[in-house]
Simulated assay, not measured.
Amino acid sequence: MYLPRVIPCLLLDEQRLVKTQKFASPSYVGDPINAVKIFNELEVDELILLDIQASKKNTEPDYEHISEIVSEAFMPVAVGGGIKNIDQAAKLINIGVEKIIVNTGAHKSFQVITDISQRFGSQSAVLAIDIKKTFLAGYKIYDHTTKKTLPIDTLTFIQNGIRSGAGEIFVNFVDNDGLGGGYNYDVITYISQNIEVPLVVCG
């Protein structure tokens, strides 16, 4: 019997836990460590932490704060935001992070995905993409730092990332973010039927 994994996705904005709608207007919803303690009690399968400002500000992950959060978590933790090279990924692995999520850092090159996969195994290398519906071109990969879509086919990008070493794909839907209206099942089905690695969806 198929048993879905329950993976809360926590958005971090300068050590605050926030909620967004369509990737905009972050509003404070609490302390991330308190949230982790609640999810410990609920026995969720995994936890995703995304720093929504690191790539925009071109800063590294906040290792100290992430370490504090990971030390409280009873489940595997995946971290994304501002990760551009293997040294940054290694620092996160060394403080207890199990999966490294690369989004913007993979838009120009999959080298960091390859490096993480070769050093720590493909199970630790997660390629994240944000998908947005466009007026003429259908669903395209969205860059939240430039607020523009990428001129590449979404599935081609994902498959190239997998060939480069990604052992998991994380997809977030910009137009569904924070609205509580459910998933975009058509796109999810299309992607899942064309890849052979785990797919995690959000938004």
Rank of each mutant, 00 (worst) to 15 (best):
residue 135 F to Y: 15
residue 90 A to T: 15
residue 74 F to S: 15
residue 89 A to W: 00
residue 114 T to H: 06
residue 51 D to G: 13
residue 42 L to Q: 11
residue 192 S to V: 06
residue 170 F to C: 12
residue 6 V to Q: 12
residue 32 P to H: 01
residue 8 P to W: 09
residue 27 S to K: 14
residue 7 I to D: 08
residue 184 N to G: 09
residue 116 I to S: 03
residue 182 G to F: 08
residue 115 D to T: 00
residue 50 L to G: 04
residue 10 L to T: 00
residue 119 R to L: 09
residue 42 L to E: 10
residue 36 V to L: 10
residue 53 Q to N: 12
residue 135 F to R: 15
residue 79 V to F: 04
residue 133 K to C: 02
residue 159 Q to F: 08
residue 123 Q to F: 13
residue 79 V to G: 00
residue 183 Y to S: 15
residue 11 L to Q: 06
residue 199 L to V: 14
residue 168 E to M: 09
residue 124 S to Y: 04
residue 110 F to V: 08
residue 164 S to D: 13
residue 161 G to F: 02
residue 129 I to T: 10
residue 86 I to V: 13
residue 170 F to W: 06
residue 24 A to K: 15
residue 118 Q to H: 12
residue 166 A to I: 07
residue 1 M to V: 09
residue 174 V to E: 05
residue 121 G to V: 08
residue 198 P to M: 07
residue 96 G to A: 00
residue 164 S to P: 11
residue 160 N to F: 03
residue 2 Y to S: 11
residue 120 F to G: 06
residue 200 V to P: 04
residue 93 I to Y: 03
residue 162 I to H: 08
residue 157 F to Y: 14
residue 52 I to L: 01
residue 113 I to S: 00
residue 104 T to I: 06
residue 154 T to N: 11
residue 53 Q to T: 15
residue 124 S to T: 10
residue 159 Q to S: 09
residue 80 G to R: 13
residue 174 V to I: 12
residue 26 P to C: 08
residue 121 G to R: 05
residue 142 Y to P: 01
residue 142 Y to K: 02
residue 49 L to C: 07
residue 135 F to E: 15
residue 11 L to C: 05
